[in-house]
Design a protein around this nucleic acid. Structure first.
Lengths: 191, 191
DNA sequence: GCCTTGTGAATGAATGTTCATTCATGCACT
DNA sequence: AGTGCATGAATGAACATTCATTCACAAGGC
């Protein structure tokens, strides 16, 4: 087993444990045990528990960003792009519930808040795709006349709330329901 | 100072501390100090930290439930009721950001999940008003044809996401924007 | 090929801290 | 002098993190 393997194992175990038990019920000792390494070993790959968590989040964000770009309809209409991204994000998290649970926890913790503040100060990432869409939409007078965070809330808020329930097993969604749901988000945003 | 005062002080301080610093950075000793009592005193009023947190959540839910009923347009149309509740919830949390932060944390913790499960099993509470509205709406063929949790997500998801940003100071909302926003939620839900 | 030595990854027991919770004692009011 | 509330030091458990030590292996000398 080489260096990369161990690092990947630790990250993977941390993701699973934290997603299922929360930050505070996932001691480093347990992460180490499940990853098949000694407690101290984690500190060869990560400076601290905070560092591990922040790295983990960064990796997930990258994966999602790439996943969105995979089949992105760069030449489509605003509406097509919007529906594509919503559907893609929704189905990604339906397929990766633990990623969702981890990120939810992350964004609802002190980590998430400072993270959010940095984003607002202009660092580009997966969200910037969505911001571009809205910006172009506004030029073409397609969406309602609301501040950007409000648009964002209308577009993604429902996804987040729905995913919570979906992942807890409170409902099932077939393809048609997904289509109708993302369309509903568009209805909220468009003028 | 009588019994009720102390209990109320403890609850109040706990709400403020937890909302601002999180469950895990709000030790009982600190709550006691800020409430002007000794550490042990809290245990005269609450069985455990868990009990304190659960009680606190219950009290907030009750307050919000009452607040919604205050001017509820019982004779209005489905749409009027929907817009009323959305506006009321939104403005309540805009005025009480700490209540929002507390409840967010609560629902994103193991407490929240079991709490949610219980709700699904039919215990009536503030949400049941909204469920009634949807139920009646469905009879009258007004909303889209989606499972109840999906409706719920379209109706409230945007509020939650928006409030997060609002409370962090990422945007401001005047009355007109609030009106437009709640209207947008309705657009998402209606057929 | 065989031995020696150097390197740095890996270990996990030990450390020091932070908490929730308890309880022996004090206090006030009856 | 008894009752019940309040106190806060003491307790013990749970952790994150450290570090002296072990171990595997490679490079270099013979």
């Amino acid at each position: 087993m080489n260096k990369t393997d161990k690092r990947a194992d630790i990250i993977d175990v941390a993701l699973n444990l934290i997603a299922q038990r929360g930050f505070h019920d996932s001691p480093m000792a347990l992460i180490a045990q499940e990853a098949g390494v000694a407690a101290g070993t984690i500190y060869r790959y990560f400076e601290s528990k905070d560092d591990l968590i922040l790295t983990l989040n960064r990796e997930l964000e990258n994966r999602i960003h790439e996943m969105i770009l995979e089949e992105y309809p760069a030449d489509g209409s605003i509406r097509e792009k919007f529906l594509y991204i919503n559907r893609k994000v929704l189905t990604y998290f339906m397929d990766h519930p633990l990623h969702f649970r981890f990120m939810e926890q992350f964004f609802n913790s002190p980590y998430g808040i400072s993270h959010r503040k940095e984003k607002l100060l202009g660092k580009s990432d997966s969200n910037s795709i969505m911001i571009d869409i809205f910006q172009k939409g506004i030029e073409e007078q397609i969406p309602k006349n609301l501040p950007m965070p409000a648009m964002y809330a209308l577009a993604f808020g429902p996804l987040i709330t729905l995913l919570r329930d979906y992942i807890l097993g409170f409902l099932r969604l077939d393809d048609e329901a997904i289509e109708q749901f993302t369309q509903a988000c568009w209805d909220a945003v468009k003028k």
